[in-house]
Design a binder for these strands. Structure first.
Lengths: 222, 222
DNA sequence: AACAGATTTTAGTCCCATCTAATTTCAAAT
DNA sequence: ATTTGAAATTAGATGGGACTAAAATCTGTT
């Protein structure tokens, strides 16, 4: 069994990898540890063939490393959903709890909750849940702020970095599947007036960068 | 936060404490580690005021140490019950899973599952669940083997050390609350014929030492 | 081409929790 | 009272994973 520390490194590298190779400093920041510690661990991970590492040039996951990262992410997202659906956790508390549980739950446990949840595809923030084999949907939603007046969009995913922001989303009832019409974007990166759930709301420009949406295609009645 | 190792030591010492002070070797056996390691840790625990420790004379929990041990045991037993009741785990698998989860679940998590379980008093093996303040029922049931022909007893608790035995109990439907009549004890520590759930069964002498029961007092109809 | 500043790595330390081997202490029996 | 065998402790080592301080490397700018 890989240590919790190693699992956390792999998970972090996976998340950061969207922007090409991953720098020592980026990992250090994400995990709140010193750069020197990261260098040390990257060498270990490289010797275990979990990452490809070149001094001063950053790091990438190997296939093996990615597989493990996705396994942990699978645990995390299933747990988040279970905490929310079965235990009624508020959105802003699920992340931390899942971060601790993800390293210790057994396959039996995961199988049970997956069944109970009905083989879900997305976690409560809208992230896709990797399959047992490590397949994961590639999603390409964009931040709300990128869209234009009059656009009607559907929320696909919320950024989950800031618990307070999540708490705000929950209070506002801005959640995955929410359908939003952009009424007005104030100039100079000002607030955005939107319409959803039957009323107008104003949301800040910064926050709107953390709501990831797609253009909403009206479905035909059947 | 105390390390998982420390939590495990305290839990183990608590369990062994029924027989007065606890020896280094007993702890070592229980945790599957060397005696030398235990001596080292006992010194640390003593310096943290979690145990009273005298070289060569064994160890006892302080009140503070006992409080923490009971907290962990509370986690463990609530989790065992939840795994069984809510997730349908088989009896023999709940212990290991709970051992891993008990160190990482939050108070929020425990509160939720306690609610869902309806503030239970016993875990699936029949052990009392400590309260939040660390109060725990003192129970005084005796092994089935101690009773005599004709006695009618109620199962209070099953020994949870051997998963295979638990699996056997489950298959036999010998569980806490089961009412058993002792029909015949074969001589020379032979097997015991018992009657319960409408049929006779024969159980081995060894196994009967792991079923803890009390004399059953017939309740009046009301 | 060389320098400045940021990034990264090296060198050396620390703490936790374990280990083995060697030694000490205890307690029971002669 | 001495011996002896078990139990416990000490001594010293190891690996994991973090740290700080110092040195090395990279990159962008002049």
């Amino acid at each position: 069994m890989l240590s919790q520390a190693i699992q956390d490194y792999l998970k972090t590298i996976y998340k950061l990898e969207e922007d090409g190779t991953v720098s020592t400093t980026a990992i250090a920041k994400e995990l709140n540890i010193s750069g020197a510690s990261v260098t040390g661990m990257l060498k270990r991970l490289a010797s275990m063939k979990l990452v490809d590492y070149n001094s001063y040039k950053g790091v990438r996951l190997t296939n093996e490393g990615r597989k493990i990262a996705l396994e942990i992410i699978r645990h995390h997202r299933l747990l988040e959903l279970y905490l929310r659906e079965a235990l009624g956790f508020p959105l802003e508390k699920i992340h931390d709890e899942a971060c601790r549980l993800e390293h210790v739950v057994s396959q039996d446990f995961l199988q049970k909750i997956e069944e109970i949840l009905g083989n879900p595809e997305y976690d409560p923030h809208g992230h896709p849940i990797p399959s047992k084999d490590g397949d994961i949907e590639i999603s390409n939603e964009k931040p709300l702020v990128n869209f234009r007046n009059g656009d009607v969009v559907i929320v696909k995913r919320l950024s989950d970095h800031d618990p307070q922001m999540l708490s705000y989303f929950e209070k506002m009832k801005i959640l995955p599947s929410t359908i939003i019409r952009i009424v007005d974007k104030a100039p100079f990166n000002g607030p955005i007036t939107v319409f959803f759930n039957g009323e107008s709301q104003i949301i800040g420009n910064e926050i709107s960068k953390n709501i990831f949406v797609e253009l909403y295609e009206e479905k035909e009645e059947n």
